[in-house]
Nucleic acid binder design. Sequence first.
DNA 1: GGAACAGGTTACAACATTGTTACAAAAAAA
DNA 2: TTTTTTTGTAACAATGTTGTAACCTGTTCC
Lengths: 106, 106
Amino acid sequence: MCESAKAHVDDLLVLLSKSKMLSILYIMNCDKEPMRFSMIKKRVNSSSTTVARRLGELEDHGLVTRTAFATVPATVMYELTEDAIALQPSLESMFEWVLNRADNAL
Amino acid sequence: MCESAKAHVDDLLVLLSKSKMLSILYIMNCDKEPMRFSMIKKRVNSSSTTVARRLGELEDHGLVTRTAFATVPATVMYELTEDAIALQPSLESMFEWVLNRADNAL
DNA sequence: GGAACAGGTTACAACATTGTTACAAAAAAA
DNA sequence: TTTTTTTGTAACAATGTTGTAACCTGTTCC
């Protein structure tokens, strides 16, 4: 593997390792439908600032599309791209492990 | 799900989201054999401090066992526990996605 | 007129994390 | 005798990240 590819790998791992990132990707797939900002924020239980930053980073990486509607008040829908959906089986299996482990810890 | 379980889930997600954590777990499974500190450090390309901190956190969570041998100089082997091995399929599939994406980005 | 709504942005202070450097131990090799 | 080796730890400065609070748009409701 060349240096350039390594940089891309690192970049993706850093992206995925940011706080709340795995949760955002996971919950966005559960409904399999475009989600509103407020709903994502509520489900991941984080500040607007952080959710907005994460969604921006996902959009920059082509993993999420953002669609704004000129309603009042504003409506914005976020949706996973095909590339992001390809990651979902791993995420589901990872969350299964996490949830299982959290249960056993009680 | 109760509050206590949520806390455990968050705890695990925070753990997995720490820098280099996914890489450490992934490379430790590739060889399927106990690995030395220096080898892990070399493979993940990080400072001793960070690698030591991560391995300590993994040990605290029961995902890695540490075995020290009284040789000179010191020899220490790290090994994934069964619990950590159960996470490997997800990790492998996630890294497959990451590597594939890094390739396509070239 | 003023409040309320969704979906943010900005600035900033507080907090968390990182790498660097120095250090350790104990025996063997130079 | 000095250096080398492995596997760390401690302290610290630099850097990165987070939440909070304030603010913004533009329309409808009271």
